[in-house]
């Protein structure tokens, strides 16, 4: 069965092509490219990706405008039906702004743009996005963001930790995130938001391929299902 995915492009997205290439390389099928102003997604999607970038120039708050664009109504509806949704970097910001994930992503604590490859711990190896990791390894994936400082109140953080919703944690301080959180899942486990860019680490020519297992986990799991 062919894997059907979609990559959403907002004005100012700049990692949409990388995301589409990663999905195509690993699944063998070409993702649909969807514009933010579209009202509908293709039917029977297996996977939706919200890419990185600076949608709407980060006006008001990063991801705030994109979260309210026409296509997001369809993305939220699909997520609520259980369709897997991956948001990377600006995509993570869009997911928190749209309410699909709890918390918020604030300006980095040091006020500086962080652009480097960071070590990560995989905290949950059971999710459909992360079951290709063992959990014992430290993986290395690039980050490139100004607003990646994850914030949620203590109660929300405790719930995330207790329910296994913390997917990735920085192995060393990166941006001031509460409890060094780098990526979280929703309660149902079908929505993942993360600041690091797995699509920038899928082949050795990228300097590493630790992001590959994320796409393989999701794609293999979904195609088998």
């Amino acid at each position: 069965m062919a894997f059907r995915s979609a990559v959403i492009t907002f004005p100012g997205s700049n990692c949409d092509r990388d995301m589409a290439v990663a999905l195509e390389q690993i699944s063998g099928t070409t993702p649909s490219r969807i514009w933010h102003g579209d009202a509908d997604l293709p039917g029977d999607l297996d996977f939706i990706a919200l890419p990185g970038g600076f949608s709407y120039g980060d006006y008001l708050r990063s991801g705030a405008m994109a979260a309210r664009s026409p296509i997001m109504k369809a993305v939220v509806a699909a997520a609520e039906r259980g369709v897997p949704v991956l948001g990377v970097c600006n995509g993570f910001q869009v997911l928190t702004e749209s309410g699909l994930l709890p918390g918020a992503l604030m300006r980095n604590a040091a006020q500086t743009f962080v652009c480097r490859t960071v070590p990560l711990k995989v905290e949950n190896t059971r999710s459909l996005f992360t079951n290709g990791y063992t959990g014992d390894e430290t993986i290395h994936i690039p980050v490139a963001h100004h607003d990646g400082n994850y914030f949620a109140d203590e109660h929300t953080l405790d719930t995330l930790e207790g329910d296994g919703q913390v997917a990735f944690r920085y192995a060393e301080p990166c941006n001031g995130s509460r409890r060094d959180i780098a990526g979280i899942l929703n309660a149902a486990g079908n929505v993942l938001g993360m600041m690091p860019h797995p699509e920038r680490a899928i082949e050795d020519a990228h300097g590493g391929s630790d992001g590959r297992a994320l796409f393989e986990s999701a794609i293999n799991g979904l195609v088998r299902a």
């Binding site: 008001l60 705030a64 309210r68 702004e97 918020a104 914030f151």
Partner: peptide
């Protein structure tokens, strides 16, 4: 509530 402020922060 819907746009101008993010009620989380």
């Amino acid at each position: 509530r819907k746009l101008l402020a993010n009620m989380v922060i």
